[in-house]
Each structure stands twice: as C-alpha cells, then as structure tokens.
C-alpha cells in the first residue's frame, strides 16, 4: 500500500535543488518548497507555550488538584477570574493543534503503510483535543463566567473537567498507536525504529488513565503517581524527541516527493488519494 509514489522522471527534477533544505539557490526563503511544513512545525512550540500558559499559570489546573479536595477549595478554584482569560486563549489557539498535527500526517504519507493509519490518526487527533483540551477549560471557565452557581454544580464541573482532561487519553492512545505502528511497519525508515517502540510505551501507558474513573485517591487517581506522573515522565521527553526527528525527516525529504512542487499531471497520488 505504498501511496508515497516517488516520481523520478528526469525532466521534472529541477537542477540546483538542495535536497536537504528545499531552498533553490538564489531564491528567497518564502519560495522554499517546504515552507508549508516548516510553518506547521514551528506552530507547535507556539501552541505548547499557549497551552502551558492556559493550564499552568492562568488556571493552576496543572499540576492536577486532588479529586478529594474540600468544597471550599473547589469553589475558590472554580471562581478564580483568570480562568476566563485561560478560556479565551484556549479557544482562540486550539486550532493550532490541527496545524501541528498536519506535520505528522505529511510525513506519515511517506511511510509504506496503508492510508487507514493516517485516517485513524486524524480521527484521534480531532477527538482527543476536543475532549481533553476544550471540555475541561469550558467546565472551569463556566465557574468564573457566572460566580453565583451552586457549589454542588461547581463540584460536578470540577470532576467533569478533570475527568475529561485526564480520562480522555484513549483518543490520544489511538492517535499515537497509529503513528507508532506506522513507524514500525514503514520500510522507508522515515523515522527511526526505536522511536516507534518508544511511541508504543507512550501510548500503552496512556491506557492507565482509565483508572482515574475508579480511584479517587492514591496512585491511580487523576493526580496519582502512576495514572499521571509516571505517564508525564514518559510523555514529555517523547514529545520533544518526536518533534526533533520529524524536523529531520522534513529536512531529508527529497524535493521530488513534495506534492506542491510538481504539476498536477505528474502526481499519480493526487488522482485517487489526495489526502
């Protein structure tokens, strides 16, 4: 199921192309044929900065608060005014996640795997942030939006927010399992094999988040050592390493594989399988 058909017709390959950077000699940076991918790539640090801003200093939702906080603590947290700013920033910037995920999919298309992997990856990358990013911030933002809500309602929104933030990892699990399996099955070696295995640990440990629906205290609760912190220790370095290797993969991509370089007729992949 190789859908990354490489077009090697000699006339198409323009002379003087540096395969590593996509820059033609004597041409300005904005004519770089990989500009789209680099823009997607650099949207990621911007997104994570905003994301960090929303969930740490603005809302202090992270590191996670305890599932058995007292009612007074919950009310104080839910009514803090910064939550509204956090919500505004999040709804304005959450679309950047889609741009960032496009960079994975562009590289996954070069792997020798069925397109089904990319479609499933995309489905997971849509459902994950909706449940895991938007739902919690909406729940917390509601408390600040109308401060005279009944404390009981605030307590429910608090549970809802945290459970959707940490209990949603099944969607991300699907998404990253598709990436991991693509790396392992790929015969073009777009990303290193060991990274595929690291991805397997990453998405398997995400399944541990299922326990947050059962345990209210201890290591398997949503602020617990095993359900949350251990996953973070695996996830954070993984995310950084994956982006590093995605960047290298963009650099190493030969220009004749770029769909935006060739005339439409020379791209067999656009006829049936345009995604």
């Amino acid at each position: 199921m190789s859908d990354s058909v490489s077009v090697d017709a000699p006339g198409i390959k323009a002379p003087g192309i540096k395969a590593s950077s996509g820059v033609r000699q004597g041409e300005p940076w904005y004519k770089n044929k990989k500009l789209d991918q680099y823009l997607c790539f650099w949207s990621v640090p911007i997104f994570y900065t905003l994301f960090g801003l929303v969930f740490v200093p603005l809302s202090w939702m992270m590191p996670p608060r305890s599932p058995d906080s007292s009612m007074a603590e919950i009310v104080a947290f839910m009514q803090s005014e910064n939550l509204l700013f956090a919500c505004v920033i999040l709804i304005l910037s959450v679309g950047l996640a889609a741009v960032g995920n496009a960079v994975y999919m562009t590289q996954m298309r070069r792997m020798t795997v069925s397109p089904a992997f990319r479609f499933a990856f995309m489905a997971g990358s849509i459902t994950g942030p909706v449940v895991g990013c938007l739902f919690p911030m909406f729940c917390f933002g509601l408390g600040a939006f109308r401060p005279d809500y009944d404390p009981e309602i605030l307590a429910m929104l608090y549970d809802f927010g945290y459970l959707s933030f940490i209990g949603c990892l099944g969607c991300f699990c699907l998404m990253w399992s598709m990436l991991g399996l693509s790396i392992l099955l790929d015969k073009n070696n777009i990303l290193p094999k060991w990274l595929g295995y690291y991805t397997v640990w990453q998405f398997v440990t995400e399944l541990f988040a299922a326990t947050v629906w059962i345990a209210k205290t201890g290591p398997f609760a949503w602020d617990g050592l095993l359900a949350f912190w251990f996953n973070m220790v695996l996830y954070v370095p993984w995310q950084i390493i994956v982006y590093f290797y995605i960047y290298k993969a963009i650099q190493n991509q030969p220009e004749h594989e770029l769909p935006n370089v060739l005339p439409v007729k020379a791209q067999p992949m656009l006829q049936g399988n345009a995604l």
């Binding site: 094999k193 060991w194 595929g196 295995y197 690291y198 397997v200 640990w201 440990t205 695996l234």
Partner: peptide, 14 residues
C-alpha cells in the same frame, strides 16, 4: 534486532 533490545530494556525498566 537491536531495536527490539531497546524496546525490551525500556519495557523492563517501565
């Protein structure tokens, strides 16, 4: 394969 050993050692540590 070496990459499988990478996986096994990591899995054992986890």
């Amino acid at each position: 394969q070496p990459s499988m050993w990478f996986f096994i050692i990591g899995d054992l540590l986890i």
